[in-house]
Amino acid sequence: MSNINDVAAAFFDACETGQGWDGCAEYCTPDATFSAQSEAIGDITELSDYADWMKGTLMIMPDGSYDLKSWAVDTERNSVLAYAVFNATHTGEGGPVPPTGKSVSSDYVYDMRFEGDKISHMTKIWHSGVALQQLGWA
């Protein structure tokens, strides 16, 4: 894959379906970084750790899915933006509290930055406070 659109799409699906870093690494530079101004994930700085966090999220919310709303490729800036809504219900063990049975529908955006044909940095734009309230975690 050399087209950033195709690479971003493959990464996005792998990440959002809980494949963890093992399923995402081939689309990224080995030292890909991550950032988010979000309470729940603000301390994650490596994309590998974020991909594994998503894998863990889908273990406690096994019905988790995404609804892709918008997709944009910016070849001038070598980036791809994805806007989606994450939907899930907390039914699995291992979360911050016992399963609440509550559901979440949470908007988010990924800004995937490329070096050549690999993602080198991703920023997630997400209001985790609303999501945590919906799940009964806050």
Rank of each mutant, 00 (worst) to 15 (best):
Q134K: 08
W126Q: 04
G129T: 12
T123W: 08
I125V: 14
K124M: 12
W126Y: 13
M112N: 09
P96H: 06
P99D: 11
M112Q: 10
V109E: 03
Q133R: 15
S105P: 00
Q133H: 14
K118M: 03
K118P: 00
S103Y: 13
G101H: 07
F114C: 03
Q134G: 10
K102N: 15
L135C: 10
T123L: 14
V97E: 07
A131L: 02
G129K: 11
V109Y: 06
I125H: 15
G129V: 09
Q134P: 05
T100K: 09
V97D: 04
I125A: 14
Q133S: 15
I119E: 10
D117V: 06
P98R: 01
M122H: 05
P96D: 14
H127G: 05
S103C: 07
Y108S: 11
G116Q: 01
L132R: 07
I119Q: 04
D111Y: 11
T100D: 11
Y110G: 09
V109L: 13
S105V: 02
G101E: 04
K102G: 12
S120T: 05
Y110L: 10
T123I: 07
E115M: 03
S106G: 05
S103H: 07
Q134N: 04
K124Y: 03
M112P: 05
L132H: 03
T123C: 11
H121D: 01
T123N: 13
M122G: 03
S105R: 14
S105C: 06
G129Q: 08
S106V: 10
Y108C: 07
M112C: 14
M112G: 11
S103K: 13
L132E: 01
Q133D: 15
V109I: 14
S103N: 10
E115K: 12
I119C: 09
H127Q: 15
V104D: 06
E115A: 14
G101C: 03
I125F: 14
K118V: 00
G116L: 00
P98N: 04
F114H: 06
G116N: 00
Q133E: 15
T100G: 11
D117G: 09
S106A: 13
S128L: 08
K102I: 07
